[in-house]
Amino acid sequence: MYREGESREYNPRDDAGPIIEGEVISEHLELGNNPEASAEQTPGSLVEAGILPAEKKNATDAVISSKWSEKAREFFKTPGGEVLKGAGVVTGVGAGLFAIWLLKDIYFIWKFAKVMIEKGGKMTYADGKKIAEDTFSALGVGGDKKK
């Protein structure tokens, strides 16, 4: 939780969790430009570049890369490749809930990449926070608001 006067960097992980109502955001941290950033970057190419290290991490994990785990992951998808339905059926909580969580991630990450490109690699803390708020708003779901 951020308080006025507190000094810290913007951390995207902060927005993976709940948005806290009434939170005071005072930082406007400007991140420097990367001269190596390509002008040809698209949200899709950036998201893909962001996914690859996580995929490599999973691929080198003995448990996640095992045959049974691979087969288990497929089990959570429907035969047509549609994600989430299997997860909903298996856990009995409904595919919709998983869909909301996954869509929140996709929406946030995509928009994050888009804004980074539009702003030439410069993003204020307020920009990041707005993306998170827009994400919840677009999906018609609220964060887990804390009193």
Binding site: N34, L46, K57, A87
Partner: peptide
């Protein structure tokens, strides 16, 4: 699932930050 979705979200956006900022 919800927790890990948040973790993955964080890992991906951090990588995007690295690709576009110093």
């Amino acid at each position: 699932f919800k927790e890990e979705a948040g973790e993955i979200n964080g890992e991906i956006t951090e990588e995007i930050l690295k690709k576009t900022t110093t």
